[in-house]
């Protein structure tokens, strides 16, 4: 037997493939290179980190195509039949949780994201929080009719997931929960994001004061902007949802510009995002890798589920008859 070949074979047996956590060493380098003090991170951040990197790539980075009306359907090109991978549905929950106070937390924003099997056209569907739905029994709470966002208050991401699944008939594979602090962190990691307000705003309740025109805003102002219900638009939740979609589009453009200009800073942004959200359940390596390698991020479609005033309470909303056909695109 050739001695060098024997040694090479031994090496193949002894060697290991680089683990995900090698990224920590990269950060060590970047911190040192940037002259920053090394940061200690909680163990396990990486797992969600990479999942979030992928999620962010798919959901935040695309230059989101805004659709004004309530019908996001129209043309779809899912190509599911020809693609090898499975489609994935992610429920994104923006909550007003501060710190660990989940009990009193409400979900402010709900977006159902669909990554088709060919990963080519992610679809993002906003679900208004005022939507009246039949909430399934969850934990110690019995089934009842209520606002969609009540599910989060009662039982967090798990109950919200169950509620959305019941409402839509769509299987939810992952939930991504982001709180106020996380949202600010994300925007601040980008530097700032541009927003445009049609007329001057003064909403003391949201802590928002802006003159008419374009502004570059940091995390705190951005948060007030996406949450405000007074002084902007007609004060409805639907109007707020549209504003949030515009903001996400702007955020996505910013992130994309950064990705092209400085991949290293973009990686730092993804990491900041990673630390700012909670994903359940975490994804296995193969899934994540395949997602990252196959995702096409320039063709996302954004819409709002079709709704109409609730017949029992005209201050609330219920699904419009066309809603099932929209949800069907997520199956």
């Amino acid at each position: 037997m050739d001695d060098l070949k024997a040694i090479r074979d031994l090496g193949d047996d002894l060697g290991h493939e680089p683990p995900a956590s090698l990224v920590r060493q990269r950060q060590r380098l970047v911190d040192a290179a940037g002259g920053r003090a090394p940061r200690r991170r909680p163990s396990g951040w990486l797992l969600i980190g990479v999942v979030t990197a992928v999620t962010a790539a798919l959901i935040l980075v695309p230059t989101v195509l805004l659709r004004g009306g309530g019908e996001p359907g129209g043309k779809k090109d899912l190509n599911a039949a020809t693609a090898p991978a499975k489609p994935i549905n992610v429920l994104i929950i923006g909550s007003d949780a501060r710190g660990g106070a989940v009990r009193e937390a409400r979900s402010d924003t709900l977006v159902l994201a669909h990554l088709p099997a060919d990963r080519k056209r992610p679809r993002l569907l906003s679900l208004p929080r005022d939507l009246m739905v039949d909430l399934p029994a969850c934990g110690r709470f019995p089934a009842r009719r209520g606002q969609l966002n009540l599910a989060f208050t009662l039982g967090g991401a798990a109950c919200t997931e169950a509620a959305v699944e019941k409402l839509s008939g769509v299987r939810v594979d992952r939930t991504v929960t982001i709180g106020f602090a996380g949202f600010k962190t994300m925007v601040n990691a980008l530097g700032s994001v541009q927003i445009s307000v049609p007329r001057s705003v003064n909403d003391p309740k949201a802590g928002l004061r802006l003159a008419a025109g374009r502004h570059r805003v940091n995390g705190s102002v951005a948060l007030a902007y996406v949450r405000a219900r007074h002084g902007l638009g007609d004060g409805s939740d639907l109007d707020r949802v549209k504003r949030q979609q515009r903001f996400m589009a702007s955020l996505a453009r910013e992130a994309k510009a950064m990705r092209l200009k400085s991949p290293v800073r973009f990686a730092a942004f993804l990491k900041a995002t990673a630390g700012a959200v909670e994903i359940r359940p975490s994804m296995d390596f193969t899934t994540v890798k395949r997602l990252a390698e196959t995702a096409e991020t320039d063709t996302a479609v954004y819409g709002t589920v079709p709704v109409r005033p609730d017949r029992r309470d005209f201050n609330r909303l219920e699904l419009a008859p066309s809603a099932p056909s929209v949800f069907a695109q997520f199956k």
Binding site: P18, A20, L22, V23, V50, A53, V288, K289, A292, E293
Partner: peptide, 8 residues
Amino acid sequence: MVAAVTAF
């Protein structure tokens, strides 16, 4: 997962 990030 490094590969994922790198590929990304």
